[in-house]
Design a binder for these strands. Structure first.
Length: 536
RNA sequence: GGGCCUGUAGCUCAGUCAGGUAGAGCGUCGGACUUUUAAUCCGAUGGUCGCGGGUUCGAACCCCGUCAGGCCCGCCA
């Protein structure tokens, strides 16, 4: 059974109505690591709906969290906002400085700025969560009742956090962080509490009172999270392994939520995604691939498959090079299979059955539209990469595919895939080994090892190519013609010789279309240089 | 110091919760086919399940220990 179905089955034992929640702090550029958070939740929600449960899928935007520091991509003006809430400060412009104009005129915040492109990526990927803005929720009073319990039972919560996390809280710790006189959550100390007011004094010499029912502050993270579970009614949440460790925020949260009078949600801990060869995603280290960029390379179904096929506790290495080819080709293979038919076979061992079920489940989760049969593009990534490199116009690509019978009509999906392929080829992610290159100089090492037979073929080939019309059709006829008058052992040797001389490898893509795009004189003179090497 | 996760074929992993002949895909090798020669099809190859003990008729799976890698116990998906 697919992991999402396992989670759904477990939920079904607990009731028919569920709220599956996810949450991200919009502190900077989103990356595909964040996609795992959302997609893991989305897949559980889909599986639960497929199992007949009533599911509300929620994405909490943690806009009430403070700006922790002036990140590298921010200008020095952001110093004044450190400690202030992300949903209450202006967004950075391209130069890293705050965009006051949009902030004042449209209320365009830091949180909006980073969230918007992510939401558009989610739309493409087929994820449609109900959005909950955390800062707005505080302001509307959604946290009011639970904040009161937390403040009333400050000692119980303190005991819980100290016991489970093993960390000692300062004497003036209080389960409510008030906003100071400059709108920040730091540099402030709680000096008293009388519901609904938390009294404070800050390092600027000011003091005041924060109304916990009006969002004039927030609950500290370890209480904020369980309070969200409480008022939203979360019954299931997937979260990163950082929260999942013993002593981490889930282990304190599950007890704190009971103090607040609610049940903890069913957890699912997932591993992180790293960029192949570059370690964990980190915005500050600059080694990120954003969801938008990832979508320029791969179609959304394939991105979904990446998450769906790996069990959550497996770390994923996102490889934008050859790994992408393998992944995409795997998708094509899977989409061509008939899982129902395979499962009808009674002879299957338990192990084989599990494997087929998991593959079927992964494909069910990969579709951007729940319940839709995933569609095969009928063309592998490899083949398309080849065509996209050798054909200048899209029309030529389609003609080739139609001629070969691989494709009957050009669907929007195919066009879409070709567009992404062309983008990928131009990007730095495109792997060298996929790149078609005609040598500029002959590969001396290779040519020197030619035997007599290969040498003869080379001479004949050179003559044929220099005499033929420089069109695809004539070139493709010319290559096999070069061996006609020779008693060669294998007819494919003509191609082997051509590949070795022109590309330095034994096998390659169809030569004629590539050569026809090149200059005849250059190709012929390359072959002549090869002959010179043999003559010398 | 305390804790979590991972370790199975060259690679990516399933199988561990419910112990019962060691599994897939990719790769590799071989063959077929071909003016679709990075394609396609067929076949083969491949593992002391990290290591050591224990429980059991029987252990990749349960228990104890151990090694290695990653992570958490301020913040982070």
């Amino acid at each position: 059974m697919h992991w999402a179905d396992v989670a759904a089955q477990s939920l079904s034992h607990k009731g028919d109505k569920h709220v599956v929640s996810t949450g991200i702090t919009p502190s900077g550029e989103f990356h595909i690591g964040h996609l795992r958070e959302i997609l893991t939740g989305d897949m559980i929600a889909r599986a639960a709906r497929d199992a007949g449960l009533d599911v509300d899928f929620v994405f909490v935007i943690d806009s009430a969290d403070p700006l922790r520091k002036v990140y590298d991509f921010l200008g020095p003006e952001y110093e004044q906002f450190v400690g202030n809430q992300l949903g209450a400060i202006p967004a950075p412009k391209d130069d890293g400085n705050p965009d006051w104009e949009r902030f004042e005129n449209e209320g365009w915040t830091y949180a909006n700025h980073f969230l918007e492109p992510f939401l558009s990526a989610l739309h493409q990927i087929g994820v449609q969560p109900r959005l909950v803005d955390n800062l707005e929720s505080y302001r509307k009073g959604n946290f009011a009742a639970l904040s009161k319990i937390a403040c009333d039972r400050a000692d119980d919560i303190r005991e819980c956090i100290e016991r489970i996390s093993g960390r000692e809280l300062p004497d003036d710790w209080f389960p409510w962080s008030p906003l100071n006189s400059k709108g920040g959550l730091d540099k402030v100390r709680v000096i008293g509490y009388e519901y609904p007011l938390v009294h404070w004094e800050d390092e600027y010499g000011q003091n005041g009172s924060s109304d916990i029912t009006k969002g004039e502050g927030k609950l500290p993270w370890r209480i904020d999270w369980p309070a969200k579970w409480g008022w939203i009614g979360v019954t299931c949440e997937a979260f990163g392994k950082d929260h999942g460790a013993a002593g981490g925020s889930y282990s304190t949260g599950r007890e704190i939520v009971e103090i607040l009078g609610h049940k903890p949600p069913q957890p699912l801990v997932y591993e992180w995604i790293s960029l192949k060869g570059k370690g964990a995603m980190s915005s500050s280290a600059g080694n990120t691939v954003g969801p938008i960029e990832a979508l320029q390379l791969v179609p959304p179904e394939i991105l979904r498959l990446l998450i769906a096929k790996s069990k959550p506790n497996k770390a994923i290495e996102f490889d934008t090079g050859m790994g992408l080819v393998t992944l995409a080709d795997e998708y094509e293979r899977l989409s061509a299979r008939d899982f129902e038919q395979e499962l009808a076979n009674q002879e299957l061992s338990r192990r084989q059955r599990v494997q087929i079920e998991d593959a079927a489940g992964a494909m069910r989760m990969a579709s951007t539209i729940s319940g839709n049969q995933v569609q095969s593009a009928a063309v592998t990534f490899r083949h398309l990469a080849l065509l996209a490199q050798t054909k200048k116009s899209d029309e030529d690509v389609w003609r080739s595919l139609k001629d070969s019978g691989a494709v009957l009509t050009v669907t929007p999906q195919l066009q879409d895939r070709l567009d992404r392929m062309r983008y990928w080829i131009q990007s730095s992610h495109f792997p060298d080994e996929m790149r078609i290159k005609i040598l500029s100089q002959p590969s001396v090492d290779v040519i020197q090892h030619f035997n007599k037979e290969e040498e003869d073929i080379l001479r004949a080939l050179t003559v044929e190519l220099s005499n033929c019309q420089w069109t695809k059709k004539d070139i493709s006829a010319a290559i096999p013609r070069s061996i006609e008058s020779l008693a060669v052992s294998h007819k494919w040797l003509a191609y082997k010789v051509a590949y070795l001389c022109l590309m330095g490898v034994e096998k390659g893509p169809r030569l004629a279309p590539i050569l026809s795009e090149m200059n005849q004189n250059e190709i012929v003179s390359l072959l002549e240089s090869c002959i010179k090497i043999l003559d010398s």
